[in-house]
Design a protein around this nucleic acid. Structure first.
Lengths: 232, 232
DNA sequence: TTCAATCCTTGATAATTGTCAAGCCGCCGA
DNA sequence: TCGGCGGCTTGACAATTATCAAGGATTGAA
């Protein structure tokens, strides 16, 4: 890892409050690499050798069983993944691949665990991150168990809309098939769900979506902060 | 909390390696209470005032949205719940009620956070617990997204079977409606799923289940350690 | 430009799951 | 003993979702 990259890493929430010498030790063991799009980074079932931090680009977490595959989450800067497996020294539960060209920091698991032992501020940051991840999955799980496909889509659109400044329109951040998989439905079903939302003012043109009847859409979606709000 | 209860609390994995004085401080702030069955302990959306540790009995975690309700998890001794909300000083994402008469340790959130700061061993134990919870939800989520209702039931039966000693028969640990909700289906659908499994040697009589064709059931269920194994 | 590939959409159809209503059965209290 | 209640099951039906097949649109490479 080049010394010119160090200040940028230092400013990440995970590292900003840890002791200088601990930070340096951790970074000496770490690799900062750029990967092309659609590259497989890890496979579920493998032992957790590294903690991953996405500093640029986007990574998809997915899982397989039987012949089926589903998208579990998408990680954007600055997000970590596979933290729990690293802390438990266990195997990965999810696979990961880059969506786009991405720059990723890899920190060997044992160094993460050592730094966790040694540096209290780092331990706090790790725990906050992990607790946030936990609450994220719980929300995803509630979303899937308590809502129909159309409701999940409606709420997801409202979320992207507010994340992008609530201007009345939004850009879908991923391929439609990825969004379908993330929402737990087939691409065909996503198309039909968009059609179902047309009477509620949802106009789709490629990745561009206009929301012409926010009140109507909200009435249908019944957004719930305990499912839809991130970061709480 | 009575001093006669202290040694038992001390032996819980969460507390056994923490410093003596930190443990005493924590316990002085805590309450050990017995609650009757079907009592609501917490409601989603409320601020996380306490960390809960189930020492006897059983607690159901559930969530509501719109008019719907679903069981998220069941916590048996010795399990904690609502740890992430406590660490983040956030609101609960799930409600909780006792299933049976239960003895529960309540520790005020701020004391948990203080002990986390002060006691490194406690911090480690907390993180292991939290990481375990995280991996548990990820597995539940994979279960729901990658399997049909019948497959989920088949795998759950295999899990209970092996947890109970793999004797060829098992006892359902909860009401069928609770199991249905946990598995993400209606009680009616659970009944039908049991019927679908009859040709695979699954005989049900109340809460008693016999598995007369383990190989056949396994072939249907295709159990996956990355979904079904607890504790890894 | 043209071809092939990919992504998305649509239609027809099937499978899965949920809803509603009714009935059975065991359990508990009067 | 007798109701009555709750939990579970079943049947009929409806809604939701998936599957399969085909076709349109876009993109990128030859």
């Amino acid at each position: 890892m080049r010394t010119s990259d160090l200040p940028q890493m230092r400013s990440l929430p995970l590292f900003e409050s840890m002791g200088e010498s601990n930070f340096e030790t951790l970074m000496q063991a770490a690799y900062l690499q750029t990967f092309p799009a659609q590259l497989d980074l890890i496979t579920e079932g493998d032992p957790a050798d590294f903690l991953y931090v996405v500093t640029d680009g986007c990574v998809e977490l997915y899982a397989r069983s039987n012949g089926r595959e589903t998208t579990m989450a998408l990680v954007r800067p600055v997000g970590t993944f596979i933290l729990a497996a690293v802390l438990k020294d266990a195997v990965y539960l999810m696979s990961a691949r880059t969506v786009q060209k991405s720059r990723i920091l890899l920190i060997p698991s044992q160094n993460v665990r050592a730094a966790f032992e040694r540096d209290e501020a780092f331990a706090r940051a790790i725990v906050q991150d992990l607790a946030g991840c936990y609450r994220g999955v719980v929300k995803e799980h509630k979303d899937l168990k308590l809502r129909t496909a159309v409701e999940r889509l409606a709420n997801r659109l409202l979320r992207y809309h507010s994340e992008q400044g609530a201007t009345g329109s939004l850009e879908l951040p991923y391929d439609k098939r990825t969004i379908a998989s993330l929402l737990g439905m087939t691409p065909e079903n996503l198309s039909r769900a968009f059609n179902t939302l047309k009477p509620y003012g949802v106009d789709v043109d490629g990745a561009a979506v206009r929301l012409n009847d926010l009140d109507g859409l909200v009435t249908l979606a019944k957004p719930n902060p305990l499912i839809d709000d991130r970061g709480t």
